[in-house]
Simulated scan of single mutants.
Amino acid sequence: MLRIHMSGLDLSRVRMAARPDALWETVLSFHRLRDRRGAAVFGAWRTETRNRLDGDVRLLAALIPLRGYFPDFLTPSQGGGEPYGIDAGIEALRGTEPRRVDAELALLEAERREAGRTPDGSAEMLGRLGAALRGYHRAAIEPYWSHIRAGVEADRAIRGRALLDGGADQLLASLPPMIRWRPPVLEADYPVDRELHLDGRGLLLQPSYFCRVTPVVHRDPQLPPVLVYPVTRPRAPVFAEPGPWLGRLLGHTRSSVLRAIGNGCTTSELALRAGVSLASASQHAGVLREAGLIDTLRHGSSVLHTLTPLGGELLRGGAPLAAQ
């Protein structure tokens, strides 16, 4: 069990990450690559990624065990807690103080459950690690970045609604079922017992596409507090091909409905934005969902519609979101 102890000041400093963190997604996806669970969501991704890999991942395997602890320096935090893009993240990783690298590698060696030798903490090793992470990210993350980002943005829309409806208390209560808000403690299912005292630093909530089953926190309690948790109901990262539904999308009203969904809205808000009846908004949303252009998630007693990557690309004229 993980217990995060929060004061009133910490509660006022809870915040949501603005986008996916490239290094968290890279490291956690390496777990998913070797895990047979979740085939419905990750099965095709695993096959495509393995076929695309052309670099040596033995160094990654030595630092990222299938289960248990991996070094905190693999997922550095920026000042202010904003997520890193892959290039800036690797530069921050390579700039980790040698003493910290050595200490975390010693901890990995003491706790590892798999056979293998833990690498040394030299600058040369960090350089090779940066190259390995970049190559793996290019194969496993970049082709699916728009899907990863869309999943995170859909989750952020749900949390944002909860924050607007009931403040930080309702935001924390809205997190996935493996996380439970029991004021003043945020509890979560976790493989080991951990107590984390925020001491006025607040908490960054980082939704992650490749985080599964339990959330993740840094081992070192002195690092900026971040809770990485699974996005709500991730979609399989596949690219839809045009089909018979394309003709059904033609028309001013339905394209207006698609544009009206924007960063997320309920059916009632959609009807108001698009200037159509509630029944018509629901019908159009159903067709767009069938076409794979929107996703619909339950939010309390209502539903929340968000764009899928395909829907976003259609509105942008086919230009995908770039990985950051």
Score class of each variant (00 low, 15 high):
Leu310His: 06
Trp145Tyr: 15
Ile158Lys: 00
Pro215Val: 11
Leu307Asp: 05
Ser29Thr: 03
His299Glu: 09
Leu163Lys: 07
Ala173Pro: 05
Pro176Val: 04
Arg212Phe: 13
Thr26Phe: 01
Pro225Asn: 06
Arg67His: 07
Gly247Gln: 10
Leu53Gly: 05
Phe73Met: 03
Glu124Cys: 02
Leu129Lys: 02
Gly202Cys: 02
Tyr69His: 08
Leu63Val: 01
Leu270Val: 00
Asp193Phe: 09
Ile179Gln: 07
Gln206Thr: 12
Gly8Trp: 14
Val14Pro: 13
Arg34Pro: 03
Asp169Ala: 13
Arg58Lys: 00
Asp35Cys: 10
Leu133Trp: 01
Thr253Ser: 01
Arg134Ser: 10
Arg138Val: 14
Val14Ser: 15
Ser280Leu: 02
Ala240Arg: 12
Gly85Gln: 08
Leu204Arg: 13
Met1Ser: 13
Asp10Asn: 14
Val192Pro: 03
Leu33Thr: 06
Val27Tyr: 05
Ala18Pro: 09
Tyr190Met: 11
Leu11Arg: 15
Arg212Ala: 14
Leu321Trp: 07
Leu171Thr: 08
Ala132Asn: 01
Arg3Val: 07
Gly264Pro: 07
Leu198His: 08
Ala281His: 00
Gly317Leu: 04
Leu63Glu: 00
Asp10Thr: 15
Gly243Met: 09
Leu314Cys: 06
Arg117Leu: 10
Ala271Asp: 02
Tyr190Lys: 09
Gln283Trp: 11
Gly243Cys: 04
Gly160Asn: 04
Thr26Pro: 08
Arg34Cys: 11
Gly262Met: 02
Leu175Trp: 11
Arg52Gln: 11
Pro183Asn: 03
Ala44Ile: 11
Arg201Asn: 06
Leu133Thr: 08
Arg273Phe: 01
Phe30His: 15
Trp145Lys: 14
His299Met: 07
Cys265Phe: 02
Val231Lys: 01
Gly68Gln: 03
Met178Gly: 10
His197Cys: 12
Gly247Arg: 11
Val228Gln: 07
Ala162Gly: 00
Gly95Met: 10
Ala123Asp: 04
Val185Tyr: 06
Asp56Phe: 00
Glu187Ile: 02
Arg159Pro: 01
Ala88Trp: 04
Trp45Lys: 09
Leu33Asn: 11
Arg13Lys: 15
His31Met: 14
Ala62Tyr: 00
Arg117Lys: 07
Phe210Pro: 12
Arg36Gln: 13
Gly243Pro: 05
Asp169Ser: 04
Glu241His: 10
Ala39Gly: 08
Ile261Trp: 00
Arg156Val: 04
Leu163Glu: 14
Arg112Glu: 11
Phe239Met: 06
His305Pro: 01
Gly262Tyr: 03
Trp45Ala: 07
Glu290Leu: 09
His218Asn: 07
Ile141His: 13
Arg182His: 12
Leu258Pro: 04
Gly8Thr: 14
Thr75Arg: 02
Ala17Trp: 00
Gly200Gln: 09
